[in-house]
């Protein structure tokens, strides 16, 4: 039990995908203007990440490794991820057109979100079991969503601030997220 918790905490906080590993920065910068769409993006990414971790693990362990096709790994993983994203996109378009509109290009771009592929590959590299892969995917997604939410909240505040013209928009967003990364450094070396 404590091992599960530890893995979750360490992937979500200590080795946060966004702030410590710098993966998946594109949606973090792109879809963090409002907390609501950030939450939607977080959910979508969580869904894709968890599903992709499981699918890629099965693919790797049941198909690629038995057949000795390790060199096809990246290709196959991208194929799987793209399909999952495509499915998610269709689902969101159907169920929540508003969210679909506000996520815009960033929704299909989950495909190229390096966090997703990164987590799938790291799972293979660390030879996790299926359950652990799922946990690892979920923990990463949790960390991603957490940072996205916090960052979106901060950006909503900053949007109301009197930011000097030279820093308005992306520059101040980068400074904000760098300060957030600085704060997350407090978790470094955390072990129970």
């Amino acid at each position: 039990m404590s091992e599960i918790l530890l893995l979750l905490l360490s992937t979500a906080l200590v080795n946060n995908v966004v702030l410590i590993k710098f993966l998946g920065l594109c949606p973090v910068m792109g879809v963090s203007k409002s907390v609501d769409s950030a939450f939607g993006m977080g959910l979508a990414t969580t869904f894709v990440l968890v599903l992709a971790s499981a699918a890629s693990w099965m693919l790797d362990n049941w198909l690629l490794q038995p057949l000795g096709l390790g060199y096809l790994r990246i290709l196959c993983f991208i194929l799987v991820i793209a399909s999952v994203v495509q499915f998610t996109e269709m689902f969101i378009k159907k169920s929540s057109p508003g969210l679909y509109q506000s996520l815009g290009i960033y929704l299909p771009l989950i495909t190229t979100n390096c966090a997703v592929l990164g987590v799938a590959l790291l799972n293979v590299q660390q030879q996790y079991s299926l359950f652990k892969s799922l946990l690892y995917g979920f923990g990463s997604a949790l960390g991603f969503t957490l940072v996205l939410l916090i960052f979106a909240g901060l950006r909503e505040r900053v949007a109301l601030a009197r930011v000097p013209a030279a820093f308005a928009g992306a520059p101040v967003a980068f400074i904000t997220i760098s300060l957030l990364a600085l704060a997350f450094m407090g978790f470094s070396g955390l072990n129970v």
Partner: peptide, 9 residues
């Protein structure tokens, strides 16, 4: 950078 007093996060 955030606009001075009262604007920082």
């Amino acid at each position: 950078v955030f606009g001075g007093v009262g604007q920082n996060v």
